[in-house]
Amino acid sequence: MNKDVFFSSSTVKNFLNKLSYYLKSLPNDDRYRHIEEIKSELYEYALELDASKSVNDREIPEDVVNNFAPPKVIADEITEEYKDELGYYHKSNNNLIKYYTVFSIATLGGLSLPILFGEMNISSSLPLILFFLGSNIWFVSNRKILWNHHLLHYFQKMIRFCASALVALPLAFFAIRIIITSKIELFTLNYLIAYLTVTGCYLFFLTMMYRRNKQD
């Protein structure tokens, strides 16, 4: 059976995608190595079925997958070998991401204060801007993050929280500023628009990072 035809089957693709997802707790190199080993086993069995002529070519992919253990069972057996090695590292990795999301979102939230005060204090805002940029540069450049399903679930919750909090907060400050001054100030309005634009871009960035790592 042709290799490209076999691996283009939706049944085989779905099996391998699930396996890759459940192996996200492993470093990328190890994960890819194990997936390649499973792919070789799948194709070897497909060739055996093809040679025996006991199964129609179109039924081979489904028959092969049905004769293998479910992806989660295979992944659990593989990750068990790494349990001791990765236990501490996973905890440390998850904590780093939690610190990043909490402080990054808190920093961006702090940058909405000029809406309430009606002016921007460069000396107090600059450290927040630098911290926000630095934390996101670290996040993008960090290749050691292990995107297991627990971390992906946490990251998804933080995106939802960010979407509500970072939109509600500046709008609330804007409303309070109007009540205090009894007018709409040009600086406050422009800053609100700029802030919501940056927040929208940040949310888009977080969502793209989540989707990319979920699919890998």
Rank of each mutant, 00 (worst) to 15 (best):
K39M: 11
L42M: 03
E85M: 03
F68L: 12
S40R: 14
K72L: 13
I60C: 02
Y45R: 05
Y45E: 08
E81M: 07
D50F: 10
E85L: 06
D57T: 11
I60Y: 00
N56F: 15
E85I: 04
S54F: 14
E80I: 07
A75S: 03
D76N: 14
E62P: 01
S52C: 07
F68W: 05
D50S: 09
P71L: 08
I38Q: 01
N67Q: 04
I74R: 13
I74F: 07
L86T: 09
K53V: 14
D84M: 12
T79C: 12
A69N: 15
P71D: 07
I38F: 06
I78V: 09
K39F: 02
D57I: 13
I74V: 13
P70L: 07
V65K: 02
V64S: 00
D50K: 09
V55F: 08
L42G: 00
E44M: 06
E81G: 05
K72A: 14
Y88N: 15
S40P: 01
E44Y: 03
I38P: 00
N66F: 06
V55T: 07
N56Q: 09
E77Y: 10
V64R: 02
E48F: 05
A69K: 13
L42W: 00
E44H: 03
E48Y: 14
L49D: 03
V73G: 03
L42P: 00
N67R: 14
I78L: 08
N67M: 10
D76Q: 14
A46M: 03
S54K: 15
K72V: 13
S52G: 12
E59R: 08
E41M: 08
F68P: 00
V55M: 12
D76W: 03
N66S: 12
P61V: 05
D57A: 08
N67K: 05
Y43V: 02
P71M: 12
E62Y: 12
L42T: 01
S52T: 13
D57K: 11
I74S: 05
E44T: 11
T79P: 00
S54W: 10
S40Q: 13
A51C: 15
V73A: 08
